[in-house]
Amino acid sequence: MKEFQYKNPTRATWAEDYSFLNNDLDNSKLEGDKNKKSNLKVTDLNLYIHQHHILKNVSLEIPDNKITCIIGPSGCGKSTLLKTFNRLIDDTEGIRYDGSIWVDDVDIFDKKTEITDIRKKMGLLSQRPCPLPMSIYDNITFGCKLHGIRNKKRLAEIVEEQLKAVGLWEEVKDRLHAPASKLSIGQQQRLCLARGLAVEPEFILADEATSALDPISSKHIEELFVELKKDYAIILVTHTLRQALRIADHVIFMYLGKVIEAGPADEIFNNPKEELTRKYLEGAFS
């Protein structure tokens, strides 16, 4: 491996940022409730589809206000893990799981947990943009209406606010009532992001969200992630190591259904502890 010192310019030094991961004492409580921490923790998650053991003893923690990249070769269970976070995986045939995932101290596998509440907390951005079969405006208000916002003025505000947040407002403000499918694919993906943000989630789950996009659109999405991380915890599954290098704050490396190594990006990229991680990364750096 070549001598490579990697440092993400968009990030503060990791040592202070990540102290809470090793610390049982939660400092955030001292800051008061105003700055509520989003919290996602997985403990001993095992997941099977029919007889296949897809996720093996996965335990990890997702830091708030960071971009967490889940990397690893195809078929290692990255996307499955992501879809387990909001339990979209439930629809898969022959699915079984045990272990627990804690979102803000609620176990999402608990029978009493309202699954729609969990999903509301997690905006999903899929590989290919998937606009709902309705207008741009209705795409954004769809989630809000589901959760009981009916006030027209408020809805219009949300639409403007969220479209501005993803930098789409100037491009579409004159055709808000045109079908969303008329937008370009890059615009559609930003619309999907805005649609997810409109229900005020705490997490953004992105499943290779830029892989279907052209380089400029994907740069746009990446920039958005970097900007949005101040308000959200972003979890990004990615195939492209370069993308992880560019924007990750925290990295989880998975291989054959196991979490091999997880930690701050600087540490993983510059100084991987595991042999497997090192080998995987060498492919990208050399």
Binding site: K83, N86, L88, D91, T116, D117, R119, K120, M122, G123, L124, S126, R128, C130, L132, P133, F142, G143, L146, H147, C192, R195, G196, V199, L205
Partner: peptide, 12 residues
């Protein structure tokens, strides 16, 4: 399935 996922993930 993506379309269903999109709606479900918004809490529908």
């Amino acid at each position: 399935r993506d379309l269903r996922d999109a709606a479900l993930s918004l809490g529908a």
